[in-house]
Amino acid sequence: MKNEWPIWEVFIRSKNGLEHRHVGSLHAADNKMALENARDVYTRRNEGVSIWVVESKHITASNPEKSGEMFEPAKDKVYRHPTFYNLPDELKHM
């Protein structure tokens, strides 16, 4: 009988005002255990004020082999950047 606990991804907010960031993963039998394990594994030195855990199977990830067609469309759109526009040097506050 297979009894391996599922993998959970752990996200920590280091302080209010900042977003939760992915810090790593762990195994746990359920969400409560995942939260407690995350506290013990990832916040022993006050690294966080808030933890999110999500079972890894619920994360849909992009495929690195398809990164080309996934992200290429943004590459040739220089006009999305402020430096694309020619403005005089004396112009302030822009």
Partner: peptide, 8 residues
């Protein structure tokens, strides 16, 4: 970039 494109 929005304001700069307008000013241009």
């Amino acid at each position: 970039f929005h304001q700069r494109q307008g000013y241009e």
